[in-house]
């Protein structure tokens, strides 16, 4: 992807009292990109999105969003951004059609009636358009929210954990839709907790404790971290976990069902560390580090930094 930068910001900072929630985050997202924004709860993802679309005033930072100054021109940015909030934020006591119509009016959409009708048809909700939004299930609410965010044909979509609490089938449909939209040139910045969703992004960034720890394509993010991972299976992995954690070279152990991922930054030290346990009792196999291994590693590292 080498499109023009849609989001290009430097040093974005937000403090609430003496707590720095977003700490000098630089980010560039290019046109047509699906950019995943990952990080644990409370890491500052939502705050960052809100600063981008003018819902929160940044305490520091500069740059552009859709070519407009991100600090001073939030009115212009709002017109071209579709922002989907984490919690369903449309009017539950309005019907589906009324919600879409209201949003269309707020954005001064041309040919409003037609646009709303088309949106209802695409949603597959034309037959239920008079149903109150509050009566919809989680999956349908999410689809309505997406349709409403798209009604003014934004150039940038900011999606804040759009798939939280949505069943796997609806999640997959949702992602298909996102890829379809990106194919048409829409730029998407999406926050998520799910690793499978992270892997569906063209590029991603990982944020923890307000700091941007890494960014790039999935394989770049994994490669940059130079993490070696072994997978082990066998009896009583809980006991093994405790024993491994005490070993030098073992930086983290993560349980994956009947397997345990054992990782460390120094491949040689890790191999020495696990050597005493490579018995018949366990089956060891070196595997490629996954995103989850990398993110947990990143988070532990930054926790150590923020504590020291």
């Amino acid at each position: 992807m080498n499109g023009e930068p849609i989001i290009d910001v430097r040093g974005m900072t937000k403090r609430f009292g003496d707590r720095t929630v977003v700490d000098h985050v630089d980010l560039t997202v290019r046109a047509g990109e699906i950019f995943g924004f990952l990080g644990p709860n409370g890491s500052g993802k939502t705050t960052f999105l809100r600063m981008l679309c003018g819902l929160l005033r940044a305490d520091d930072g500069s740059g552009t969003c859709l070519g407009h100054d991100v600090i001073t021109e939030s009115e212009a940015i709002k017109r071209e951004v579709g922002y989907m909030t984490q919690r369903f934020s449309f009017w539950e006591d309005l019907s589906i059609a009324e919600n879409l119509d209201f949003v269309a009016r707020m954005y001064d959409v041309k040919n409003r009636r037609q646009t709303v009708r088309k949106s209802l048809e695409q949603l597959g909700l034309a037959g239920r358009k008079d149903q109150l939004a509050g009566q919809l299930s989680g999956g349908w609410k999410q689809r309505l929210a997406l349709a409403a965010c798209l009604i003014h044909k934004p150039k940038l979509l900011l999606l804040d954990e759009p798939t939280a609490g949505v069943d796997p089938k609806a999640r997959r449909d949702f992602w298909d839709e996102i890829h379809h939209l990106a194919g048409e040139g829409l730029t998407v910045l999406i926050t998520t907790h799910y690793m499978d969703e992270a892997e569906r992004c063209h590029r991603l960034a990982y944020i923890a404790y307000g700091k941007l720890l890494t960014h790039g394509a999935v394989d770049e993010v994994i490669g940059n971290e130079r993490l070696t991972t072994w997978s082990v299976s066998g009896q009583d992995l809980a006991k093994l976990t405790e024993q491994l954690r005490a070993r030098p070279g073992v930086e983290q152990t993560v349980a994956f069902g009947n397997m345990l991922h054992v990782s460390g930054g120094d491949a040689a030290a890790l191999e020495q560390g696990i050597a005493p346990f490579r018995t018949d009792q366990y089956e060891w196999r070196q595997v490629e580090s996954g995103l989850e291994d990398v993110f947990i590693h990143l988070m532990d590292k930054s926790k150590d930094n923020s504590l020291s």
């Binding site: 679309c53 819902l55 009115e75 709002k78 922002y83 949003v103 954005y107």
Partner: peptide, 9 residues
Amino acid sequence: TMENLLSMP
């Protein structure tokens, strides 16, 4: 819904 309203121009 305020957040939504404020995100509109």
